[in-house]
Design a protein around this nucleic acid. Structure first.
Lengths: 357, 357
DNA sequence: CTGAAAGCGCTTACAG
DNA sequence: CTGAAAGCGCTTACAG
């Protein structure tokens, strides 16, 4: 039996009493402000150290509430049925917003169309005009994203990237998965389950592939695993720049006809449900299917057994943590972590019920 | 672009002004306290509703800090090298303690020896004597645990169970895994990877098995999966009431000699590292090995490839969430959720680096 | 270089 | 049934 925090913590009043000064002076020392004689400062500091003084965050925030509110900007893709994924980060942002509302934090959303770089650029301009005190964004389009970051650097505005990093750029802060590793893990899971040296298809289904860093990087990780295990020759690819089911299914049908020996399909993004739909229609539950993200469609096919694994990197928590990071930096001057790599979660038919984004 | 919380929220002062009463009366209505005329009450309530008033939690807590502190009791196994697992829940408790320290919360730990029911009973008595305002416990020994719960019910003290439930008892609140399902998931993972109808060993290694609900229930879940998939005849068992490596390895050696066709071992608890050590020594990386918990030893064997999967149910978060639940109930009168089932995480060699308890 | 006073939004005796 | 006042621990003008 051991007590935690036995005595009630001493506050500024007590420190002032012990140092025989006013609490205003104590406050100056605590915050390292100008205008205190070295002597007084030393005396007060000694007492602070001795007492192990910790400010009462509640009182601090309450007092500060008088000052202006903090406004944050959030730049994310607009949410449509096709981009359901982005609901999760937004939920996380809202959750954080709810918790820090009391602290006078205001959040403004700026939405762009994932398929249209212009909309992204427009929103960047709007954000610059709004001059928020902190920015949360996902750099879907690296060039305009970098311009925004440049602007942040010039104005000293903190920012946090979520979900994907900007390749080759050393950002102030990144919260999201290590996507190379997530591709590597995908390969491990398929390799563990596949039989008789069957072939494995890497399927990339997206409007844009060549400049899609996330998709390419996952593929690299996936291939790296197979190479590291001397299995590279069993890999096939299927690319589709069209995301309609009709197109994807036609391509799949063709490939499966050409290569009857396919044992698994790895889909590099959340479009895995398209492949699942095809495999269901084709009655091919024997083919292992692995893809990304905990979306309604995907979970549906996890239940039917057409998808074997979903990999998911807590998108909601990314949004939540991103806002909290900015908040704590602005309010308590906490340093912003360079990167916070999310866990890479494995979801199957038997554990999805308990999953929390 | 949409604003969240445009106008600054109105407080008691504003409500009092609008209702032409004092803030004390407003406070009475907010907290549903006696002694306000129906008429005044209605008038104030109308304004509260119209404004969508939300109390400022910071100010609330700060004002309440004047009142006595809240003390919570935590009843967990003592931590030794053999019970490293319990470090995680304790870390979670400490994390929560840090966050709510400002709110005047004091936490007292009561440790018992997992192998000695008497020590548990003794600590229960101590807790009853200390009469804390809330209790977090893991009911390793159901009978004395039930006596403590009975006492809680009589005194109206809230409590939370973590890690394991009490079989057949409808507890006030449980935070932990659905262990049947976790056994079921283990079976799925083994089934997915195992080749050629090889045999699967269910290994129970613990000082106490017959009364160990968690172990038995995981086994049930595991067997249920095999039964549901018409594969029950491939299951073998290995029980060991001794947890020394020498004993376990001898038993394993014997079993493997008798049954050369073993393809996987499922260990129902964190003792999986003992089996891993044996398989490593025997040079049997071909045997799939799956067990529980993110302990140092286990992770070590995950790295070497002797353990294929670890199942883990965020023990740290269980401790954290347990304390927070009690706190929020005591302070904000939040209702306590009957059960919060943890996600069942799957850890492999390729994602363990990012795992967070 | 230092201090007295007001205020953040809420709660709680106390007085009537 | 209702209100005026003090206080939670901190911060911030303002005055000297």
């Amino acid at each position: 039996m051991k007590k935690n925090n036995a005595k009630a913590a001493a506050g500024v009043k007590e420190i002032a009493r012990l140092a025989q000064v006013s609490i205003a002076t104590v406050d100056r020392v605590i915050h390292n402000r100008e205008g205190v004689s070295e002597k007084t400062k030393a005396k007060i500091q000694a007492i602070i150290d001795k007492l192990g003084y910790q400010p009462n965050v509640l009182a601090q925030r309450l007092a500060l509430a008088a000052r202006g509110a903090i406004n944050l900007a959030v730049l994310l893709p607009a949410i449509s049925s096709e981009t359901e994924f982005w609901q999760a980060p937004k939920d996380g942002v809202n959750k954080a917003a709810g918790e820090i509302r009391q602290y006078g934090v205001t959040i403004t959303y700026f939405y762009f169309d994932q398929n249209d770089e212009n909309t992204f650029e427009k929103q960047v301009k709007k954000i610059v005009r709004a001059s928020p005190q902190g920015i949360l964004l996902t750099p879907t389009f690296p060039e305009p994203a970098l311009r925004l970051i440049e602007h942040c650097n010039n104005t000293g505005t903190p920012y946090v990237l979520i979900n994907t990093d900007i390749p080759g750029y050393d950002a102030m802060s990144y919260i999201g998965p290590e996507i190379f590793r997530s591709g590597y893990l995908a390969a491990q899971l398929i390799h563990y389950g596949i039989r008789n040296n069957k072939k494995v298809v890497i399927a990339k289904i997206a409007r844009e592939i060549d400049n899609n860093y996330a998709i390419l990087r996952k593929e690299e990780g996936f291939r790296a695993y197979f190479k590291d295990h001397g299995l590279s020759n069993g890999l096939l690819t299927l690319d589709s720049l069209q995301t309609e089911y009709a197109v994807v299914s036609r391509k799949l049908a063709k490939l499966i006809k050409q290569e009857p020996d396919i044992g698994a399909v790895f889909v590099t993004n959340s479009r895995v449900s398209l492949v699942a739909r095809f495999l269901e229609a084709a009655g091919r539950k024997d083919i292992i299917l692995l893809g990304y993200d905990f979306t309604t469609d995907n979970v549906q096919y996890l239940k039917t057994g057409n998808i074997d694994f979903l990999i998911c990197e807590k998108p909601q928590e990314q949004g939540y943590r991103g806002i909290m990071t900015l908040f704590q930096h602005l309010v308590y001057s906490n340093t912003i972590e360079k990167s916070y790599l999310m866990p890479i979660d494995i979801i199957t038919r038997e554990n999805y019920i308990f999953y929390r984004n």
